[in-house]
Computed example of a mutant assay.
Amino acid sequence: MKYDVFSNLKLDDVVSSINDEVIGWRRYLHENPELSFQEENTAQFVYDQLNSFGGLEISRPTKTSVVARLIGIHPGKVLAIRADMDALPIQEETKIEFSSKKDGIMHACGHDGHTAMLLGAAKLLCSFKNQLKGEVRFIFQHAEELPPGGAIEMVNAGVLDGVDLIIGAHLVSYLKTGKIGLNYGPIMAGADQFKITIIGEGGHASQPNQVIDPILIGTQVVTNIQHIVSRKLDPIDTAVISVTQFNGGTAINVIPNSVNIGGSVRSFKPEVRNHIPMLIEQIVKGITNAHGAKYEFVYDLGYSPVINDNEITSLIDKTVCEIVGEENRELIKPIMGSEDFSAFLNEVPGTYFFVGARNEEEGIVYPHHHPKFNIDERALKDGIKIFVQGAINILNN
């Protein structure tokens, strides 16, 4: 059941009252993006805004992150809400009036909007501090875009100490504004990467019989890696293996000594994630041995899969239906993108959902990490309303 602390005020009216301010925050952040682990001015901006709200206990757990605690007068659970703040090394091509002022850096993933939404939610919830049970902990995280990521640093710094559950959201350009995407269980994949060096014996291109050709061997490795998902894994298990780098050779008439191969692996189940590197190395070892070559193999685990807790997802699901209507709530399939929000979910239960920000009439249709990526700013109100009402429903029921 929806818990109402707004008396005669409607949530939509309350959120609308700060809408211009929220948009202003988002545009300031968009104009002044900062890369992962470099968000010093962004963190200071967030700190200053939070400090102006009053009633918050604010800290800086790492150099470029901020945490604010809103502690109600009644005992209860501790809910954390997270927003990420970093930008990407991309040259902006949107031509909007508040485009990035920094060459080669832009908010091409919506983190400026995430930060503005959470600031808005914090400001509104501060107004109802005396009616809240428990605590809302606002986590403004740095460095989501660059592994090992800022989330694990914040976990190690103790930002989840005492937290019972956590929620987070991502603005997305593939859902229309007004739509909210949810999923019970897995929603985003784990992301790992591998690097392979095939070491042969180079020589003249006219005498391939006198060399151990690492390019030929490497192409066989790439081809056979593609068989892993289709022939070595259970068809029910979802995984993606993409070879994204193949580098070798500097001259047309020279067969090189070695080639370097790199790629990305996405999966959901721990057993699949642990099995894939063994299968890749098995292929590399077998093919290089057959040709008398050597190899080096490095496999790095990245972000874990984002696995939503069913009970908490159900609570947010009900809130979403209250806010936007059941017809605008979509149960979506898991996606193979990754998110270091998983580091928080590895510690406490929670859920992660998507806020639609696509507007075809205004040309806001480009995918994430694209130089023309933008968001429909009307979506900011949807995110704030779900954060605010979700927090009230979770803590006060």
Rank of each mutant, 00 (worst) to 15 (best):
V240G: 08
I283G: 05
A251Q: 13
I283F: 02
G249D: 08
Q282N: 15
N274C: 05
I255E: 06
H275T: 14
P208M: 07
V284I: 15
L216M: 02
G286C: 05
T238C: 09
P256N: 05
I228T: 01
I228Q: 00
Q226K: 11
A293W: 08
I236M: 06
L233R: 10
I261V: 07
I236Y: 08
L279K: 03
V211E: 00
I252W: 11
V259I: 15
V272S: 13
D237I: 01
V254S: 10
N257H: 10
A290K: 00
I283Y: 01
N257W: 06
P235S: 04
I283R: 00
V211Q: 03
H291Y: 15
Q226V: 05
V221N: 07
I215E: 02
T244N: 08
V254R: 11
I280R: 01
I255A: 07
E271H: 15
T250P: 00
N260I: 15
S264A: 12
N257C: 07
G248P: 12
E281F: 06
Q282E: 14
D237G: 03
K294T: 05
Y295W: 12
N253F: 11
S258T: 08
G248N: 10
N274H: 11
V259F: 09
H227Y: 13
K232G: 01
L216C: 06
T244E: 10
N260P: 01
A251H: 08
A293S: 04
V240D: 02
V259S: 11
V259Y: 05
L279R: 10
R231I: 03
S242Q: 09
S258M: 08
P277V: 11
I236K: 14
M278H: 13
I241W: 06
I215T: 09
G248I: 14
V272F: 09
D213Q: 02
I283K: 04
E271Y: 14
Q245I: 10
N260W: 06
D237M: 11
G218Y: 02
P270S: 14
G262K: 07
I217K: 01
Q220R: 08
T288A: 04
H227P: 00
P256D: 09
P277S: 09
N209A: 05
G262Q: 12
P208L: 10
Q282V: 00
I252M: 09
N247M: 14
N274R: 14
N224T: 11
A239T: 03
S242N: 14
F268D: 07
I283V: 15
V254T: 13
T219W: 00
D234N: 13
K269W: 04
I236Q: 12
A290Y: 05
P235T: 01
K294N: 14
Q282S: 15
I287Y: 02
S230A: 08
Q245P: 02
F246R: 01
N247P: 04
I261D: 05
H291F: 15
N289G: 03
R273D: 10
P277F: 10
T250Q: 11
G248A: 12
N209P: 00
F246W: 09
P235M: 01
D213V: 02
N260G: 08
